[in-house]
């Protein structure tokens, strides 16, 4: 039990919280067909993270979040500039800008000497879940002990805070975000600022990318952003259920992936643990395949709809 608290609780929590925070935001990206923006931002925040880390010298969240937000907004503006000047389609403009930003981040890691401390290329690629340990835990009582809790890895606490922030924003702006996602022109015509809302989503995605950085790195975070929303999208046509299902998928992806990585080596007889962040993405992939097969447009759903068609026919006026 103590071993679980010391070694597994914090990384499992961090993995789950990261998937939840990113997965819920991912719905807004998916429904506005901006999944690739998540891809671009997750790459583009790297130089911001490294610069924030370099300046502050700590893993304290604030400077890195500030750097990442600046990088995300800067990248978005640059994408727009490149699109208009080089007349490129959005995907290509993103490719130009985010690979440049990502390369800059990688070089900054070397130049700044950040790798000597904590931040190295491995963390960018695979995350660093195994570094999140809670040595102060002595037993279940530690969960209520403020002294021991103060030692709880700050990365997990930051993630919890970010998740709360995202849940709060989703609750506060529930109808506004839906309106802006569905019909931005109409939203603008009745005075609900869709551009401000999409900028807010952009900033939140960059915040979530930073918070999730230590857990999953900056490439696998794309899976956390896109997969839960995509899984839910295959299973439902209702807006609220889309968010609930994506939350469930994120939970399964985070916790399930973490445990799969911990348990699989024992089952397979490997003497080396599997990478937890990678396993989370693989779990998401399996869930996605399942959703494809079960979903309304999959083989199962098609059979179901064949029965449903006669009900629809009289309603159709055309």
């Amino acid at each position: 039990m103590t071993e679980f608290l010391q070694l597994d609780l914090a990384p499992m929590l961090a993995a789950t919280l990261a998937c939840l925070a990113c997965g819920l935001l991912g719905n807004l990206l998916l429904l506005t067909r901006q999944s690739l923006l998540g891809d671009a931002i997750s790459h583009a925040v790297l130089p911001g993270i490294v610069a924030g880390f370099w300046v502050s010298g700590t893993r304290a969240a604030a400077p890195m979040v500030a750097g990442a937000m600046a990088a995300a907004v800067g990248a978005t503006l640059l994408i727009a500039l490149v699109r208009s000047r080089a007349r490129l389609e959005p995907g290509a403009a993103m490719g130009v800008v985010f690979s440049g930003f990502f390369a800059l981040g990688l070089v900054l890691i070397e130049v700044s000497g950040a790798h000597a401390v904590d931040l190295d290329v491995d963390c960018v690629l695979y995350g660093q879940l195994e570094a999140l340990i809670w040595p102060a835990a002595t037993g279940p009582g530690s969960l209520l002990d403020p002294v021991a809790l103060a030692e709880f890895p700050a990365e997990a606490k930051t993630l919890a805070l970010v998740l709360l922030l995202i849940l709060g924003l989703l609750a506060l702006l529930w109808k506004e975000l839906r309106l802006a996602a569905f019909d931005p022109d109409f939203a603008r015509s009745i005075g609900f600022a869709p551009r401000a809302l999409s900028l807010l989503v952009l900033v939140m995605v960059s915040v979530a990318c930073v918070a999730a950085f230590w857990a999953v790195g900056s490439i696998l975070v794309i899976a956390a952003l896109v997969a839960p929303a995509a899984i839910a999208r295959l299973l439902t046509d209702a807006y609220a259920r889309q968010f609930l299902l994506s939350g469930a998928a994120a939970l399964a992806m985070g916790a399930g992936g973490y445990w799969a990585a911990a348990l699989a080596p024992r089952v397979l007889g490997l003497d080396h643990g599997l990478n937890a962040a990678g396993m989370m993405a693989v779990t998401a992939g399996l869930l996605l395949v399942g959703a494809c097969l079960l979903g309304r447009r999959g083989p199962a759903g098609r059979a179901q709809r064949r029965v449903a068609i006669p009900v629809r026919a009289p309603a159709a006026a055309e």
């Binding site: 429904l31 067909r33 996602a181 019909d183 022109d185 015509s189 009745i190 999208r233 807006y239």
Partner: peptide, 17 residues
Amino acid sequence: VGYLPQRASVDWDFPAT
């Protein structure tokens, strides 16, 4: 003033009733 956009301007696959 009220606006009725073109029907084709939105994604009708959107999960909404």
